[in-house]
Protein backbone atom coordinates (compact mmCIF):
# COMPACT_ATOMS: atom_id res chain seq x y z
CA UNK A 1 0.00 0.00 0.00
CA UNK A 2 1.13 3.49 -0.80
CA UNK A 3 2.03 5.91 1.96
CA UNK A 4 0.43 9.32 2.39
CA UNK A 5 3.20 10.55 4.68
CA UNK A 6 6.82 9.40 4.85
CA UNK A 7 9.14 10.93 7.40
CA UNK A 8 12.77 9.87 7.75
CA UNK A 9 15.18 11.25 10.32
CA UNK A 10 13.17 14.44 10.84
CA UNK A 11 14.71 16.96 13.20
CA UNK A 12 13.68 20.44 14.24
CA UNK A 13 15.82 22.69 16.38
CA UNK A 14 14.54 26.06 17.62
CA UNK A 15 17.64 28.03 18.54
CA UNK A 16 19.24 25.59 20.94
CA UNK A 17 16.03 23.72 21.76
CA UNK A 18 15.77 20.41 19.88
CA UNK A 19 11.97 20.17 19.65
CA UNK A 20 11.99 17.12 17.32
CA UNK A 21 14.85 14.64 17.55
CA UNK A 22 15.35 12.24 14.68
CA UNK A 23 11.79 11.10 14.10
CA UNK A 24 10.85 8.54 11.43
CA UNK A 25 7.40 7.14 10.63
CA UNK A 26 4.93 6.72 7.83
CA UNK A 27 1.18 7.08 7.47
CA UNK A 28 -0.60 4.83 5.01
CA UNK A 29 -3.12 6.16 2.54
CA UNK A 30 -6.64 5.82 3.93
CA UNK A 31 -5.47 5.54 7.51
CA UNK A 32 -6.49 7.50 10.62
CA UNK A 33 -3.20 8.14 12.33
CA UNK A 34 -2.93 9.65 15.79
CA UNK A 35 0.08 11.47 17.18
CA UNK A 36 -0.15 11.38 20.95
CA UNK A 37 1.97 13.19 23.44
CA UNK A 38 1.94 15.51 26.41
CA UNK A 39 2.05 19.28 26.09
CA UNK A 40 5.30 20.48 24.57
CA UNK A 41 6.25 17.10 23.12
CA UNK A 42 6.35 18.48 19.58
CA UNK A 43 2.98 17.54 18.08
CA UNK A 44 2.17 20.96 16.67
CA UNK A 45 5.73 21.37 15.42
CA UNK A 46 5.41 18.03 13.57
CA UNK A 47 2.15 19.14 11.93
CA UNK A 48 3.70 22.46 10.96
CA UNK A 49 6.52 20.66 9.21
CA UNK A 50 4.15 18.24 7.49
CA UNK A 51 2.11 21.16 6.13
CA UNK A 52 5.09 23.23 5.05
CA UNK A 53 4.50 25.99 7.58
CA UNK A 54 7.92 25.28 9.10
CA UNK A 55 10.85 23.60 7.45
CA UNK A 56 12.67 20.79 9.18
CA UNK A 57 16.25 21.30 10.35
CA UNK A 58 17.21 17.89 8.97
CA UNK A 59 15.60 14.79 7.50
CA UNK A 60 13.34 13.86 4.61
CA UNK A 61 9.64 14.62 4.61
CA UNK A 62 7.39 13.41 1.82
CA UNK A 63 3.63 13.99 1.79
CA UNK A 64 1.25 12.69 -0.91
CA UNK A 65 4.22 11.92 -3.10
CA UNK A 66 5.65 15.42 -2.88
CA UNK A 67 8.91 16.43 -1.27
CA UNK A 68 8.74 19.12 1.44
CA UNK A 69 10.26 21.60 -1.02
CA UNK A 70 6.97 21.48 -2.96
CA UNK A 71 4.71 22.16 0.04
CA UNK A 72 4.22 25.80 -0.95
CA UNK A 73 2.60 24.94 -4.28
CA UNK A 74 -1.10 25.52 -4.92
CA UNK A 75 -1.47 21.92 -6.03
CA UNK A 76 -0.19 20.63 -2.71
CA UNK A 77 -2.17 23.12 -0.63
CA UNK A 78 -5.47 22.10 -2.27
CA UNK A 79 -4.77 18.43 -1.57
CA UNK A 80 -4.51 18.97 2.18
CA UNK A 81 -6.86 20.38 4.82
CA UNK A 82 -5.61 21.88 8.07
CA UNK A 83 -7.13 22.54 11.45
CA UNK A 84 -4.27 24.09 13.36
CA UNK A 85 -3.96 24.88 17.04
CA UNK A 86 -5.34 28.34 17.80
CA UNK A 87 -6.68 28.84 14.29
CA UNK A 88 -9.26 31.53 14.18
CA UNK A 89 -12.15 32.89 12.19
CA UNK A 90 -13.25 36.37 11.14
CA UNK A 91 -15.29 37.32 14.18
CA UNK A 92 -17.35 40.07 12.57
CA UNK A 93 -18.44 37.91 9.64
CA UNK A 94 -21.06 35.17 9.59
CA UNK A 95 -20.25 31.49 9.65
CA UNK A 96 -21.37 31.29 6.04
CA UNK A 97 -19.15 34.18 4.89
CA UNK A 98 -16.15 32.69 6.66
CA UNK A 99 -16.64 29.38 4.88
CA UNK A 100 -17.42 31.11 1.58
CA UNK A 101 -14.02 32.81 1.65
CA UNK A 102 -12.19 29.49 2.01
CA UNK A 103 -14.50 27.75 -0.44
CA UNK A 104 -13.36 30.25 -3.05
CA UNK A 105 -9.72 30.18 -2.02
CA UNK A 106 -9.70 26.39 -2.37
CA UNK A 107 -11.79 26.57 -5.54
CA UNK A 108 -14.52 24.32 -4.13
CA UNK A 109 -18.19 24.59 -5.19
CA UNK A 110 -20.23 26.89 -2.91
CA UNK A 111 -22.87 24.21 -2.38
CA UNK A 112 -20.26 22.42 -0.26
CA UNK A 113 -20.88 24.96 2.51
CA UNK A 114 -24.36 23.66 3.36
CA UNK A 115 -23.21 20.06 3.08
CA UNK A 116 -20.32 20.57 5.48
CA UNK A 117 -22.38 22.66 7.94
CA UNK A 118 -24.72 19.69 8.27
CA UNK A 119 -21.74 17.38 8.86
CA UNK A 120 -20.58 19.44 11.84
CA UNK A 121 -24.11 19.90 13.16
CA UNK A 122 -24.29 23.64 12.50
CA UNK A 123 -26.93 23.69 9.76
CA UNK A 124 -28.93 26.28 11.72
CA UNK A 125 -25.98 28.56 12.49
CA UNK A 126 -24.85 29.62 8.99
CA UNK A 127 -26.22 33.15 9.26
CA UNK A 128 -24.85 33.75 12.75
CA UNK A 129 -21.96 36.12 13.36
CA UNK A 130 -18.92 34.17 14.53
CA UNK A 131 -18.39 36.38 17.61
CA UNK A 132 -21.77 35.15 18.88
CA UNK A 133 -20.84 31.46 18.75
CA UNK A 134 -19.72 29.31 21.66
CA UNK A 135 -16.17 27.96 21.74
CA UNK A 136 -17.27 24.49 20.69
CA UNK A 137 -19.29 25.91 17.80
CA UNK A 138 -16.28 27.88 16.58
CA UNK A 139 -14.21 24.73 16.78
CA UNK A 140 -16.76 22.94 14.61
CA UNK A 141 -16.67 25.76 12.05
CA UNK A 142 -12.89 25.31 11.95
CA UNK A 143 -13.33 21.57 11.41
CA UNK A 144 -15.74 22.41 8.58
CA UNK A 145 -13.20 24.80 7.09
CA UNK A 146 -10.53 22.09 7.11
CA UNK A 147 -12.75 19.51 5.38
CA UNK A 148 -14.87 21.60 3.05
CA UNK A 149 -12.75 21.25 -0.09
CA UNK A 150 -12.57 17.44 0.26
CA UNK A 151 -8.81 17.16 0.71
CA UNK A 152 -6.98 13.83 0.27
CA UNK A 153 -5.28 14.31 3.62
CA UNK A 154 -6.38 16.32 6.63
CA UNK A 155 -4.32 17.42 9.61
CA UNK A 156 -6.28 18.03 12.77
CA UNK A 157 -4.37 19.50 15.71
CA UNK A 158 -6.46 18.64 18.79
CA UNK A 159 -9.75 18.83 16.89
CA UNK A 160 -12.10 17.97 19.74
CA UNK A 161 -10.42 19.62 22.73
CA UNK A 162 -13.20 22.21 23.13
CA UNK A 163 -16.13 19.88 22.49
CA UNK A 164 -18.68 18.26 24.76
CA UNK A 165 -19.10 14.46 24.50
CA UNK A 166 -22.15 14.75 22.26
CA UNK A 167 -20.51 16.95 19.69
CA UNK A 168 -17.26 15.02 20.00
CA UNK A 169 -19.10 11.83 19.07
CA UNK A 170 -20.77 13.68 16.19
CA UNK A 171 -17.42 14.85 14.84
CA UNK A 172 -15.96 11.35 15.32
CA UNK A 173 -18.76 9.85 13.24
CA UNK A 174 -18.13 12.50 10.60
CA UNK A 175 -14.42 11.75 10.53
CA UNK A 176 -15.05 8.00 10.27
CA UNK A 177 -17.38 8.62 7.35
CA UNK A 178 -14.87 10.90 5.66
CA UNK A 179 -12.18 8.31 6.21
CA UNK A 180 -14.37 5.56 4.78
CA UNK A 181 -14.69 7.70 1.66
CA UNK A 182 -10.90 7.60 1.30
CA UNK A 183 -9.53 10.63 3.17
CA UNK A 184 -6.35 10.07 5.17
CA UNK A 185 -6.52 11.67 8.61
CA UNK A 186 -3.57 12.75 10.73
CA UNK A 187 -4.59 14.00 14.14
CA UNK A 188 -3.00 14.93 17.43
CA UNK A 189 -4.75 14.58 20.74
CA UNK A 190 -4.27 14.41 24.47
CA UNK A 191 -7.36 12.27 24.71
CA UNK A 192 -6.52 8.56 24.86
CA UNK A 193 -10.12 7.42 24.54
CA UNK A 194 -10.46 9.49 21.43
CA UNK A 195 -7.32 7.90 20.01
CA UNK A 196 -8.50 4.39 20.86
CA UNK A 197 -11.91 4.98 19.33
CA UNK A 198 -10.72 6.70 16.19
CA UNK A 199 -7.21 5.74 15.19
CA UNK A 200 -6.02 2.81 13.10
CA UNK A 201 -2.52 3.44 14.40
CA UNK A 202 -1.03 5.78 16.95
CA UNK A 203 2.46 7.09 17.66
CA UNK A 204 3.68 8.22 21.05
CA UNK A 205 5.73 11.36 21.01
CA UNK A 206 7.67 12.25 24.11
CA UNK A 207 10.25 15.03 24.38
CA UNK A 208 10.51 15.16 20.61
CA UNK A 209 11.19 11.43 20.28
CA UNK A 210 8.89 8.79 18.84
CA UNK A 211 8.47 5.90 21.27
CA UNK A 212 5.98 3.45 19.78
CA UNK A 213 3.99 3.25 16.56
CA UNK A 214 1.24 0.66 16.27
CA UNK A 215 -2.49 0.07 16.47
CA UNK A 216 -4.03 0.97 19.84
CA UNK A 217 -4.97 -2.66 20.49
CA UNK A 218 -1.58 -4.04 19.51
CA UNK A 219 0.01 -1.62 21.97
CA UNK A 220 -2.40 -2.61 24.68
CA UNK A 221 -1.63 -6.30 24.17
CA UNK A 222 2.07 -5.62 23.91
CA UNK A 223 2.09 -3.96 27.31
CA UNK A 224 -0.40 -6.35 28.84
CA UNK A 225 0.90 -8.43 31.74
CA UNK A 226 -0.58 -11.52 30.05
CA UNK A 227 -2.23 -12.65 33.26
CA UNK A 228 -5.76 -13.66 34.21
CA UNK A 229 -7.29 -11.81 37.11
CA UNK A 230 -9.68 -14.11 38.94
CA UNK A 231 -12.12 -13.14 41.65
CA UNK A 232 -13.70 -16.01 43.62
CA UNK A 233 -17.01 -16.13 45.43
CA UNK A 234 -14.96 -16.29 48.58
CA UNK A 235 -13.69 -12.76 47.81
CA UNK A 236 -10.24 -14.00 46.94
CA UNK A 237 -8.32 -12.25 44.11
CA UNK A 238 -5.85 -14.32 42.14
CA UNK A 239 -3.44 -13.33 39.39
CA UNK A 240 -2.63 -16.31 37.19
CA UNK A 241 -0.06 -16.06 34.43
CA UNK A 242 -1.29 -17.01 30.98
CA UNK A 243 0.99 -20.07 30.69
CA UNK A 244 0.42 -23.75 29.86
CA UNK A 245 1.43 -24.98 33.30
CA UNK A 246 -1.34 -22.89 34.89
CA UNK A 247 -4.09 -24.45 32.76
CA UNK A 248 -4.97 -27.04 35.41
CA UNK A 249 -5.30 -24.41 38.14
CA UNK A 250 -7.70 -22.40 36.02
CA UNK A 251 -9.65 -25.52 35.04
CA UNK A 252 -9.90 -26.48 38.70
CA UNK A 253 -11.25 -23.07 39.69
CA UNK A 254 -13.90 -23.15 37.00
CA UNK A 255 -14.82 -26.79 37.63
CA UNK A 256 -15.29 -26.21 41.36
CA UNK A 257 -17.61 -23.27 40.60
CA UNK A 258 -15.53 -20.76 42.53
CA UNK A 259 -15.08 -18.16 39.76
CA UNK A 260 -17.17 -15.03 40.13
CA UNK A 261 -15.22 -13.03 37.53
CA UNK A 262 -12.20 -13.59 35.33
CA UNK A 263 -10.60 -11.15 32.92
CA UNK A 264 -7.33 -10.48 31.17
CA UNK A 265 -5.35 -7.46 32.15
CA UNK A 266 -5.14 -5.20 29.11
CA UNK A 267 -4.02 -1.70 30.01
CA UNK A 268 -5.75 1.30 28.51
CA UNK A 269 -3.81 3.34 25.98
CA UNK A 270 -3.22 5.92 28.69
CA UNK A 271 -1.64 3.32 30.93
CA UNK A 272 0.51 2.10 28.05
CA UNK A 273 1.69 5.63 27.46
CA UNK A 274 2.56 5.93 31.13
CA UNK A 275 4.59 2.72 30.96
CA UNK A 276 6.39 3.69 27.77
CA UNK A 277 7.33 7.21 28.74
CA UNK A 278 7.25 7.01 32.50
CA UNK A 279 5.05 10.04 32.27
CA UNK A 280 1.34 10.77 32.18
CA UNK A 281 -0.42 12.73 29.51
CA UNK A 282 -0.97 16.25 30.65
Amino acid sequence: MENAIEVTGMQKIFGSNPAIKNVSFHVKKGEIFGLLGPSGSGKTTTIKILTGELSQTAGKVNVLGEDSKQFGSTGFKTKIGILSDNSSLYERLTVYDNLKLFCKLYNAPLKQIDVILREVNLQEEGAKTVSKLSKGMKQRVLVAKALMHKPDLVYLDEPTSALDPGNMAHIHRGLKKLNAAGTTIFLTTHNMEEATALCDRVAFLHNGELQEVDSPNALRYKYSTHAFHVETFGGERLVIENQAENADQIRELIASGQVRAMHTDNPTLGQVFLKVTGKGLV
Binding site: E53, T74, K77, S84, N86, S88, Y90, F102, L105, Y106
Partner: peptide, 13 residues
Protein backbone atom coordinates in the same frame (compact mmCIF):
# COMPACT_ATOMS: atom_id res chain seq x y z
CA UNK B 1 -3.11 39.82 15.72
CA UNK B 2 -6.18 37.59 15.37
CA UNK B 3 -4.12 34.80 13.74
CA UNK B 4 -6.39 34.71 10.70
CA UNK B 5 -3.47 35.39 8.36
CA UNK B 6 -2.20 31.89 9.11
CA UNK B 7 -5.41 30.36 7.72
CA UNK B 8 -5.05 32.40 4.54
CA UNK B 9 -1.43 31.46 4.03
CA UNK B 10 -2.19 27.75 4.64
CA UNK B 11 -4.77 27.99 1.86
CA UNK B 12 -3.70 28.35 -1.77
CA UNK B 13 -3.82 32.15 -1.34
Amino acid sequence: EKKTLRGLIQSPA
